[in-house]
Design a protein around this nucleic acid. Structure first.
Lengths: 315, 315
DNA sequence: TATATTGCATCGATAAAATCTATAATAGTT
DNA sequence: AACTATTATAGATTTTATCGATGCAATATA
């Protein structure tokens, strides 16, 4: 035996995650000296330097990176033992921490959480809203069990499992030119009057992709304003004119009056592929399968197929 | 955290391996009560029964099997950390425990151990001679790092890496009919006068396969005698007449006089594929690669190719 | 230049645990 | 019924992780 124990591995991973002994100690629910001692012992036992403490924030050495990557593997495999017991018991219980992007959270969550809770009463599910980049980071640090976001990501070590295909719609002010067009095609889109989400939001990238515009289009916009919320954007269209694009679930919940401003594209419609993604192939797969089932059962049936349109890339 | 520690996982694996608390405790270098207590704690913490102690030898429950399989994974991933450090250091050191079949051990080992020791002085290599079936069992229990044996095995979770292809030759008493035949083909072989290794030896199976005989041919043999040693078999041929088949490395070391009794087959000659096999894809791969290099450098060059013959199956 | 501030390391005491030795309980055998 | 083999239990001992207090070094602030 090497001499390291699982606790020490957790400490190593924590320090690597938070790049600070004090914070890492807090997250591990121990005092800083305790963590310092164990890290030191680990380094002595392996006879390598894992963290360069002369730098601030702390730097993980190259060997350290490899060791910590392996430590993550060990911890994950270890945690799987718990699931094996649970799976064997046949009871669906445990906890799930799921990340979700802002352009889905307010519209998708209300749809399926009820269904999931009802069918899996013993599962403690919680959600964290973040943009894709942060979700991927959190997944790789094992801070999330899975995330619901728009794919394809083309991220190494991230597994994608498509959930549904959401139509991209147009929300145009009654006086905007697009409001009059009969049969809408992607080519009809212009930068004139277009409202956009903040940088970092994948839906912003998709919109820009669709309009074949450069990332920096703010010059063409009527007003230099960006928001993290689709609802805010939509309200700006109502108040100030112009138009924006809306994912179907965001459009779906609009009251009748507002719904008049929603226009569909002609077939093939642009779609965004919404997926459940995770980094650990076997971890909590039973619970994640239940989650997947709940989501698919809760979105409109036609969204489960993609043959009516084409998936919009965004990376 | 689950509460189990790595020590407990080792204990679980040990009990599963030896099916006896007392023996398992010995192998773990602790007293039996220590091991009993930890196993009990593990079962309590997971809230499952892992071992059925009412049976003798102890029976691992179905859940227990799964937990222990996962425990093996955790331990292996854990042990890999040590290697990562070593690989990083660039020094070739550590230990290797290699299994090898009896029909290879006395002829192959002397060929390459010198080469290996000279090129890897810091590696502590040891060998265990066993028949294939036991080698596979030991590999799956992680009691061996790798084994040198005759493939293909068609065993799940066992990885084969071909080392060389050894000719199968004939060793016939001067008065035996085969001794006179000019051009020897496999079809010439008969059961008459054939001497065989014990059951369980893969070379026995290969010989029987080649001769297209049933497993139970002893009735046709001049004398009902089986041995675990090729040398003994060969000496019986000398003393009592008849013939046997010899792998090339066993024939190679014969003194000039005896070598006259060795006959080669015509091309395509029957070959046995000798491989380095292991169960853990990443474990000690650097050392095993060095081992592989040493072996390939030590056997006659022509054995590295198989185009002169056909590989004899034996399973 | 003096002085907080931040962040990690060290020290001694304490509490938790794993382990040991000795012994008991249990089941199967002769 | 005695014997043997095997696991479980009890109490003592040792090892270990943890904590709180403190020290020390680097950096930022006055």
């Amino acid at each position: 035996m090497l001499g390291l124990n699982l606790q020490q591995l957790e400490y190593l991973v924590a320090v690597d995650n938070y790049k600070q002994f004090t914070i890492a100690a807090e997250k591990c629910f121990v005092t800083q000296p305790t963590l310092s001692m164990q890290i030191k012992k680990a380094e002595e036992q392996l006879d390598i330097v894992i963290f360069d403490r002369t730098k601030q924030p702390i730097l993980t050495t190259p060997v350290g990176e490899k060791i910590i990557a392996q430590a993550r593997v060990v911890i994950n495999e270890y945690n799987r033992m718990e699931e094996i017991v649970r799976e064997e018991s046949g009871r669906i219980e445990g906890s799930l921490t799921i990340g979700i992007i802002p352009s889905l959270a307010p519209y998708l969550l209300p749809l399926f959480v009820g269904h999931f809770k009802k069918n899996n009463p013993l599962v403690n599910i919680s959600f964290k809203e973040m943009i894709t980049e942060d979700l991927v980071k959190a997944l790789k640090q094992d801070l999330l069990d899975a995330a619901i976001l728009v794919t394809p990501l083309e991220e190494k070590d991230i597994i994608e499992q498509a959930l549904f295909y959401e139509d991209v719609l147009i929300y145009a002010h009654p006086q905007h030119s697009l409001h009059q067009v009969k049969s809408l095609k992607v080519d009809n889109l212009t930068s004139s009057g277009l409202w956009l989400l903040d940088e970092g939001h994948c839906f912003r990238s998709q919109v820009l992709n669709l309009c074949e515009l450069q990332a920096n289009v703010s010059a063409d916009l009527p007003l230099h304003f960006e928001s993290g919320s689709l609802d805010t954007i939509r309200k700006m269209v109502d108040a100030e004119g112009g138009y924006t694009l809306l994912p179907a679930l965001a459009a779906q919940e609009l009251v009748f009056d507002l719904h008049k401003q929603v226009k569909e594209f002609e077939i093939p419609v642009p779609l965004r592929e919404v997926s459940l993604v995770y980094s650990r192939a076997f971890y909590k797969r039973l619970l994640l399968e239940r989650l997947s089932v709940s989501i698919k059962a809760s979105v409109p049936e036609e969204m489960l197929h993609k043959d009516r349109g084409h998936v919009v890339e965004w990376k």
